[in-house]
Simulated scan of single mutants.
Amino acid sequence: MTDKSMTQRIGFVPVRNFALMSYASATEPLRAANLISGSPLYEVVPLSVNAASVSCSAGFDLKCQDLAETGDTFHTIFVCAGGGPADWAGADSLYPHLRKLARQGVKIGAISSGAYMLAAAGLLDHHEFTIHWEHAALLRETFPHLTPRQTRFVIDGARITCGGGVAPLDMMHALITDRMGADFARRVSDWYLHTAVGDSVDPQRGSSAERFGTHHRVLLSVLEKMEISIENPLSRDAMATWAGVSTRHLNRLFIEHQDTTFSSAYRAIRLKHARRLIEQSALSVSQVAFATGFSNAAQFSNAFTAFFGLRPKDARRAAKTARSAEYALE
C-alpha cells in the first residue's frame, strides 16, 4: 500500500465532450482531501496526447499535460469520456500509452463511457467493470466477449471503472477510505453534503418500479426479463412459464397495469434499444435488426418506422446532424 505521507498522482484523460459533472465528481473529493488533511495527499493532473486542450460538455477547454511524458509516476489514470462514438473519434491514439502505463504497473480506470476506450485498448479482458448504462449495449455489441456490470463502480485490482454522473463521488469515497480510513473519507464526503454514500453494487438507474410505473411483482420481473432478452426474445407462453403464471393472466397484467399488450411492450423495449444502437454505433441496419431480435432488416425497418415515425437511416442521420450542430457551437 502507498505510504500515506506520499502524494499520489492521479491522472485524468478527458475525451472530447467529456461530462463535466463526472469529471468534477471524481476530482473534487481529491481536492477536498488535501484541504482537510492540510497536506498534498493527491495531485490531480489532466492529461492528453500531445498536451492538447480538450473541450468538455459545458463548452470550455481543459488544459492538459502530455500523456506521453507521464512515465510510471502516476498511481492511477482515469479515462473520462461522455457523449457518444462521434466524440471518441481519434481516441485510439490513447491506447498505446494506456497499454504501456498498465505494463508499468499504473492502475488504469475509466469514468462514464471511458470504459469503451479501455475495452478497445484490450485493457478490460479478464476484469470486472462497468460503464454508463447508456453505452452498455454498444459495448456489448462491439466487444461480445465483455459483459459490463450495471453497478455504480467496480474496483477490480488494477482496473477501476465508474458509471459516471455523481457515482464518482461514491467511487472516490471508497478509494479514499482504502487509503486514509473510513473516518477521514466521511469527512471528505461531508464536505460536499454527500451524506448518502452509495455502495459499489448499487444500481445506476432508478428502480424498475419507477421506470415502468408499476409495483406488481410478477409484471416487474417480466419487464426486467424483457430488457435482458432482446436479441432472442421469449415468446409470450415461454415468458408466462418463466414467471410462473398463465398466458392469459400475463396478458391481463399488461392490459391492466401498462395499458398495452405483452407484444407491444416487448417490441417497444427492443426498438428503444435499437434506436440507441442506430444513433451511437456504426452497426449496419441489418446488424442492429439481428441484435434486437428481428428476423431481417426489412421487418426491423418497418417496425422502427411505425414506432418512431422515421426510418432507421433517417434517425442515424438526424443524430449525426445534431452532433455536428453541437460541435459548431463550440
Results as ranks from 00 to 15, higher is better:
133 W>T: 06
168 P>L: 05
119 A>R: 01
252 R>D: 13
290 F>Q: 13
78 F>D: 15
215 H>L: 11
267 R>M: 07
148 P>M: 02
228 I>Y: 05
302 N>A: 12
50 N>T: 01
12 F>I: 12
39 S>Y: 04
202 D>R: 02
247 T>V: 04
198 G>H: 13
45 V>K: 14
65 Q>T: 08
196 A>P: 06
178 D>T: 12
3 D>P: 11
212 F>K: 03
327 Y>D: 14
309 G>P: 12
329 L>T: 11
132 H>Y: 15
234 L>T: 07
250 L>G: 03
220 L>C: 01
264 S>G: 04
63 K>Q: 07
85 P>I: 04
202 D>P: 04
237 D>V: 05
191 W>Q: 12
278 I>N: 03
145 H>C: 01
51 A>G: 02
108 I>T: 05
251 N>M: 00
140 R>C: 10
32 A>G: 07
117 M>G: 14
42 Y>F: 13
6 M>W: 12
173 H>E: 13
232 N>F: 08
25 S>Y: 05
93 S>C: 06
307 F>R: 12
69 E>L: 02
129 F>G: 10
260 T>F: 00
232 N>I: 09
308 F>I: 15
305 T>M: 12
9 R>D: 15
40 P>F: 07
176 I>N: 14
249 H>P: 04
268 A>M: 08
62 L>Y: 02
138 L>N: 02
133 W>I: 05
31 R>K: 11
80 C>S: 15
206 G>Q: 11
182 A>N: 15
80 C>R: 08
94 L>C: 02
266 Y>D: 08
116 Y>G: 12
9 R>W: 14
125 D>L: 03
158 A>T: 07
240 A>V: 01
26 A>H: 13
156 D>Y: 08
83 G>V: 09
299 Q>C: 07
200 S>H: 14
200 S>C: 13
41 L>Q: 13
233 P>Y: 00
240 A>W: 02
242 W>K: 08
245 V>M: 03
